[in-house]
């Protein structure tokens, strides 16, 4: 079995300064990297002969409007099936420059996950072959999962917002 420390050490040795913020909340190795190195890191993990982190579990994003300079965080969950070992990689992005390279060449399944992230958060995945909205209508002019946009449909008639602090 792999341990979090072991993998973290290897990664630091391999990538040095570019990987940081190692942590293991609830026993899941988490670290950050920058968008210039994300593809490299993912590919390294995937092709590593021992780790074989060859399964991309999920790609998503989080919006932190209050942390200046780190407004968006793209989160990759990866999984080594052979070692049963999970890794979470985070890439922080600035609000005025939400670009990150795509990892579709590494994992075909990243396609829709990235499209969904684009649709909901407006994060552009550079090199994505077909970066269109996937869940929402094409005409939508905002990215609804950002915190500043309301959840509710404004046209509803049968609810009263004033009640109970809603």
């Amino acid at each position: 079995m792999l341990t979090n420390e072991e993998v973290a050490q290897t990664l630091i040795q391999q990538f040095g300064e570019t990987v940081s913020d190692f942590d293991d909340p609830y026993d899941l190795l988490t670290f950050s990297t920058s968008r210039d190195h994300i593809v490299e890191v993912v590919q390294y993990l995937r092709d590593h002969p021992v780790y074989q982190v060859g399964f991309l579990t999920d790609v998503t994003a989080v919006h932190y409007p209050d942390s200046v300079g780190k407004e968006f965080c793209v989160v990759y969950h990866m999984h080594s099936l052979t070692n049963n070992f999970r890794i979470r990689i985070k890439v922080y992005l600035q609000a005025d420059d939400v670009h990150i390279p795509t990892i579709i060449p590494l994992f075909a399944g990243a396609n829709w996950m990235e499209r969904e992230t684009f649709d909901l958060f407006g994060i552009s995945f550079d090199g994505h072959p077909d970066l269109r909205r996937i869940l929402n209508m094409e005409e939508m002019d905002y990215h609804p999962m950002r915190k500043q946009y309301p959840l509710e449909d404004e046209t509803r008639e049968d609810k009263i917002d004033a009640l109970f602090g809603r």
Partner: peptide, 17 residues
């Protein structure tokens, strides 16, 4: 009928619209 639990930006609030 009314949108139900999904009072969200993407759901039609009842097909009677």
């Amino acid at each position: 009928s009314s949108g139900g639990i999904f009072d969200t930006y993407s759901v039609l609030q009842g097909i009677d619209r």
